[in-house]
């Protein structure tokens, strides 16, 4: 796959379709892939990496990249194309400055899981079908790719590319019964005290590094409320752990009904807070109250929380009064 992608990148650059390519390159470590812009064959041949660690969603980078002169090619996995569509819908990306190459994906891997499997001093990871071949300081080892898959990929919602100019690999389908709401349902079944304890436990780990906001494709505001001293909720040292929770809850409200559930927030969290669960709770509620909705699936429909119809239900009627109108 990496070779096909690199060849496509070089081809698009050299035939003049684009003058920049957005892809991934190695960061501090080989598994720590970071988004990067390439402008020449040499750079691509040297640095471009596509591997089981190419989890980073490139769509958000197009907000800035597409506003520059010329055209940029971007390699988008299925879940990234949903974010891309959502950004197009919000007029954040200039579509005619982007050439989208959709790439098929059957799940990315999580280094934490490989370590948890027992691999130490990992020097490289090669994918061979369903197995991963590991080189470690202590010799080679193999493991099933399924055991190393990232949490968000295990309950993947869709392998379908919803936006592309051309594609590499076979397009997949939307996955019904992905099981992505199982954990939300578990949390819902808890008593309020248990649930509060769960979230207090998780959110109090937050160090306010803002990585979740910075990576989130739904967070592209010109001026974020957390950076705006006039908003009253601007960045400052939290007085107590409750204020840290408010940051995440406000963020979940801001992206509600626009979040495509790409799972980047949880991926980048250095404290491993399962932030995606907050967003999924919103998605689950929206599905139940206003009908199934997947943001980014198309360019036409309105996000349910920005669409008012006479048929809209009253959530308090549904949840507190057993679904009966007064």
């Amino acid at each position: 796959m990496q070779e096909l992608i690199k060849a496509k990148a070089i081809e698009l650059l050299e035939n003049g379709t684009v003058d920049r390519v957005l892809g991934w390159k190695a960061g501090e470590f080989f598994y720590d892939l970071t988004p990067a812009v390439f402008t020449s064959r040499e750079e691509i041949e040297k640095d471009f990496v596509y591997s089981v660690f190419s989890g980073a969603n490139l769509s958000k980078y197009l907000v800035k990249e597409s506003r520059k002169d010329g055209k940029v090619a971007a390699f988008l996995k299925p879940c990234d194309t949903y974010s891309f569509n959502q950004l197009l819908k919000e007029h954040r990306i200039w579509r005619d400055h982007v050439h989208v190459v959709g790439i098929a994906c059957d799940g990315m891997c999580d280094m934490e899981k490989i370590r948890a499997y027992g691999a130490k001093g990992v020097l490289s990871v090669e994918r061979d079908g369903d197995t991963l071949k590991l080189e470690t300081l202590y010799g080679p080892m193999t493991m099933n790719k399924a055991d190393a898959e990232a949490e968000r990929c295990i309950c993947c919602k869709s392998r379908k590319l919803v936006a592309y100019d051309e594609k590499i690999g076979e397009d997949g389908d939307v996955i019904e019964n992905s099981g992505r709401f199982d954990m939300v349902a578990k949390l819902e079944a808890m008593t309020p005290d248990e649930r509060y304890a769960f979230w207090q436990g998780e959110l109090s780990k937050c160090i306010r590094c803002n990585a979740c906001r910075d990576v989130c494709p739904a967070c592209t505001c010109e001026k974020c409320v957390f950076d705006n001293p006039k908003s009253g909720i601007a960045q400052k040292a939290a007085v107590n752990s409750f204020e840290e929770s408010m940051y995440h809850i406000i963020r979940a409200f801001h992206v509600a009904s626009r979040c495509t559930d790409c799972g980047e927030c949880s991926r980048v969290c250095p404290q491993n807070i399962p932030l995606h669960l907050l967003n999924r709770k919103f998605i689950k509620d929206i599905n139940e109250l206003y009908g199934e909705y997947q943001s980014g699936a198309d360019l036409e429909t309105r996000p349910p929380l920005m669409n008012f119809t006479q048929e809209d239900c009253e959530p308090s009627v549904v949840y507190e009064r057993g679904g009966k109108q007064a």
Binding site: K89, E90, H91, R92, T220, C221, E222, K223, N228, R302, P303, M306, N307, F308
Partner: peptide, 21 residues
């Protein structure tokens, strides 16, 4: 205008059609 993203959220919820871009 300095803070506006141009995302059309406001336009979508405006019941009077008062917002343009």
């Amino acid at each position: 205008e300095l803070m506006c993203n141009g995302c059309s959220s406001c336009e979508k919820v405006c019941p009077y059609g008062a917002i343009t871009y």
